[in-house]
Design a protein around this nucleic acid. Structure first.
Lengths: 190, 190
DNA sequence: GTAATTTTTTGATATAGGTCAAAATTTATG
DNA sequence: CATAAATTTTGACCTATATCAAAAAATTAC
């Protein structure tokens, strides 16, 4: 299985992986497949696994007035989980489902805790990669506060350069916090 | 100086502080005072210090069409810096100024790097405290996407429970991404 | 491959909140 | 304290985008 060729390079963007750590990672990460439409995580449960996507597309969403609101989308070479649920091991509002058939490497929270406890460089990895993530959130906050619906959509196209065409319009609209009618009109005018 | 009674308890919310680490922290953290209106960080420079506020109120803002837009406010027992500038050691858009006379403990980025390199528990501290922070950003993103101006203001009042009355209206409006006229009307109607 | 379902588009209308301008109030300064 | 400067409030008006409804198009299922 290609933990070595897919997951290791991701870590190595942030830290050096010792042979021991590689060994532990390889033993603890397991490939899993989700069919299109399958639920990867249910908000009824505490999130105990984090998935690193090898191929496919996942959506993190929540329910608001019985409607599905997309929180964000994740694709190849990204970790996905229900953040506050996974970190705090408590319930949270997010569901995750597969917009495409998806293959992902799965890491259990207990294994991650073991790795944090025994490999300080994993703490560093987490700190640094969270920094990358915070950067995205800062940008998103900016985009939500000060831009028109059209600019929000353009920002989305940039942020999701590689995958925007794989995501249905309605889901993009809820991600941006605009109505799908407005988004449809924005698209039409180009 | 009361690094011991102010800063240590903050760290101890997340990690145990060894005597050695306490010693290093105490040696590297220095108290500094800013007068009301004083610039704590200038966007023209790379941010090399992080400040832990002992007393006072700081504002992080940026310029947009020559207007000051408040990004967030920070008060007692919080770290403040220009996040992306401090972490990546490159220029970013944020200025920080003092809305009140402020006393803050200052930690240089080089000292922090030393601490990260020699005390793995500091990496853990950073990881965990960033998690807390991400939680706030997730909430803010929700609030910006799906709520009316009034609800945004109410969310602000919750988030800044202790300090909202110390922040001028115009700065709150730009923080929320609404016009100050609208905010003034919202306040009037209560 | 046709029917059923879901998603997207188009049209008409309503409204929250923006902008501009000026008055009122508060805060800062000599 | 008095005057200047900054901030907040109020009013009039306008526009971007929401909502509701229905048609069109695309996708899914039998």
């Amino acid at each position: 299985m290609d933990v070595e060729s897919i997951v290791f390079p991701h870590f190595e963007q942030y830290i050096r992986l010792s042979p021991e750590l590689k060994h532990e990672l390889a033993n603890r990460i397991h490939l899993r497949t989700f069919e299109k439409g399958e639920l990867v995580h249910n908000a009824d449960t505490i999130c105990v696994r984090s998935y690193f996507i090898r191929k496919g597309l996942l959506r993190t969403y929540f329910l608001k007035d019985d409607k599905e609101i997309s929180e964000y989308f994740s694709s190849e070479n990204q970790w996905v989980n229900s953040p506050r649920s996974f970190i705090k091991q408590k319930l949270d509002i997010y569901y995750i489902d597969a917009l495409e058939k998806t293959e992902a490497f799965s890491l259990h929270v207990q294994d991650l805790v073991y790795l944090f406890d025994n490999f300080p460089e994993m703490e560093r990895y987490a700190r640094l990669s969270m920094g990358t993530n915070s950067g995205f959130m800062i940008e998103r906050i900016f985009s939500l506060r000060f831009t028109t619906a059209k600019e929000k959509y353009e920002h989305f196209l940039e942020t999701y350069q590689h995958i925007h065409h794989r995501i249905p319009l309605g889901m993009i609209a809820s991600y941006l916090g605009i109505s799908q009618e407005t988004l449809s009109r924005i698209r039409a005018e180009k």
